[in-house]
Design a protein around this nucleic acid. Structure first.
Lengths: 142, 142
DNA sequence: GTAACTGCAAACGCTTTGCACTCCC
DNA sequence: GGGAGTGCAAAGCGTTTGCAGTTAC
């Protein structure tokens, strides 16, 4: 999606286009993992020295309402933001909390088999697999 | 699982058996949905008038460490506690937050197909489907 | 021009922590 | 008897809210 499409989505839904919102979205899609609000805040400070954490939360909430990102709540610590709203698996390291997306073969077909039996229409989904990433399981051995 | 088995699990892991911990666990398995710490607190007050919210959190944390329950974190509001740690689907109403378990046909087989392709061994999983429950979608029509 | 947004700070809600007292083993 | 657990209150932390000043349109 280019910036023009993004502008149109914002405006069609009555939201103004601001450099802060664009920066948050573009930062999210530039990352392979799924950062927290605070990580986004720290990353954007350099280019947007006056940006505030409140604005990060506001931008994330707008992007979520527009269906452009998914918010992932966890037991401990802060929420993580995933710019991918399609059916996919979140691989979550239970030690360091790093998250990346995973697309098993035939996932869509398998997921259809699961949702076909429902009488209702899902509005969204979340599939997590918890494990220990390579970095963390190597540290355990040391 | 009867209370004797539960006693053994606690003791084997160096935790003491207390009436509060048993009450929290037994309350959880008595429910079809997945309550929050505060709901558990309010439900147990009657039989345990002096129980505190801190103790509820302590008990839940012990039960989670023993692998007897799963803690489900969400974006908004409080965590929910699920006494079912097997592979299953959490049906989450996005309006009222009610959660109940769902077992699609062949879920285990389908899940195996997804996890078989992994090089690592998962330590756990979470599958949510978001929707609007009957009660909430009826309220929308009124 | 004006309604929406930003930045800042204060408030909020859920959860954890600290500590004296109590209870399990 | 001793250490872990409880109950209570205070603190902690991520997130939301309120408001004056600013910006998109």
């Amino acid at each position: 999606m280019d910036d023009q499409e993004l502008y149109a989505i914002f405006r069609k839904n009555g939201y103004k286009v601001t450099s802060q919102r664009l920066a948050v979205y573009n930062y999210l899609i530039s990352r392979e993992d799924h950062p927290s609000a605070d990580e986004i805040f720290n990353a954007l400070k350099e280019e947007h020295p006056t940006i505030s954490l409140g604005t990060i939360y506001n931008s994330l909430s707008v992007l979520r309402d527009l269906g452009l990102i998914q918010e992932l709540g966890f037991n401990e610590g802060s929420s993580r933001y995933d710019p991918n709203t399609e059916v996919h698996v979140n691989m979550v390291c239970e030690k360091c909390g790093e998250i990346h997306d995973y697309y098993p073969e035939f996932l869509e077909t398998l997921w259809e088999k699961i949702t076909n039996s429902l009488e209702i229409t899902p509005t969204g989904q979340r599939i997590d697999i918890y494990y220990q990433c390579e970095k963390c399981s190597n540290q355990m051995k040391e």
